[in-house]
């Protein structure tokens, strides 16, 4: 007579849960979702700047992760793997909505160097004195003020650690455009964070 073994899912490592999930254990998969859902949702929210879309795409990412579990071989962490799935979903949506590749006059100007030279260079310690949570919130606000195209390259480079070449491939733009968008975005962020400092000193 087979003996039923009840796993203690919360105490297991991701690697073990992934192996069980790959064998069809939905409880193991649910535990993985419970552990990493906020990170996946946060990444979708950072890309889309819309809570409903972030919720939808984060859930869709988990569905795709389940369908592709057999392909996960552990080259990266499981959370990184699912994060890449949600990023690809968001990029698809942004492309569909023409939010990352549309070259507005302003963006063209920025990328040709017409605007960024009028913006401040990143200043040393522009946010000194801010509480950590407040700083995090202000950085999020500043990211929200970037265009989708500029924010996307910042997210992929700074938070996902992708190289220019990989960003170009994923977004569907040239490496030169990645570089100029990243440069403009950083200077814009520096400008926005600098203005926070001014707000505090007034």
């Amino acid at each position: 007579m087979p003996v039923s073994v009840k796993h203690d899912y919360p105490s297991e490592a991701d690697e073990t849960l992934v192996k069980w999930a790959q064998k069809g254990d939905t409880e193991a998969f649910e535990q993985l979702i419970f552990r990493h859902r906020d990170k996946i949702y946060a990444r979708a929210l950072m890309m889309m700047r819309n809570e409903d879309q972030a919720l939808e795409y984060s859930q869709e990412a988990w569905v795709k992760a389940w369908q592709r579990l057999a392909q996960f071989q552990g080259e990266s962490s499981f959370a990184t793997w699912v994060t890449r799935i949600v990023i690809n979903l968001c990029l698809d949506q942004l492309r569909r909505q023409k939010r990352v590749r549309t070259e507005s006059i302003e963006a063209m100007d920025e990328e040709s160097g017409g605007v960024e030279r009028q913006l401040p260079a990143p200043e040393t310690n522009p946010t000194a004195g801010l509480e950590q949570d407040e700083l995090r919130r202000r950085i999020d606000e500043a990211l929200g003020k970037l265009t989708d195209a500029h924010r996307t390259v910042v997210v992929l480079h700074e938070f996902e650690g992708l190289e220019y070449k990989e960003i170009a491939k994923r977004v569907g733009i040239s490496i030169g455009t990645v570089m100029s968008r990243l440069f403009y975005a950083r200077r814009r962020l520096a400008f926005l964070l600098q203005s926070l400092k001014r707000e505090r000193s007034e």
Partner: peptide, 11 residues
């Protein structure tokens, strides 16, 4: 600065 203060969110 921004890597150390990556925005967070809760489902």
């Amino acid at each position: 600065l921004i890597r150390a203060h990556e925005p967070v969110a809760t489902v």
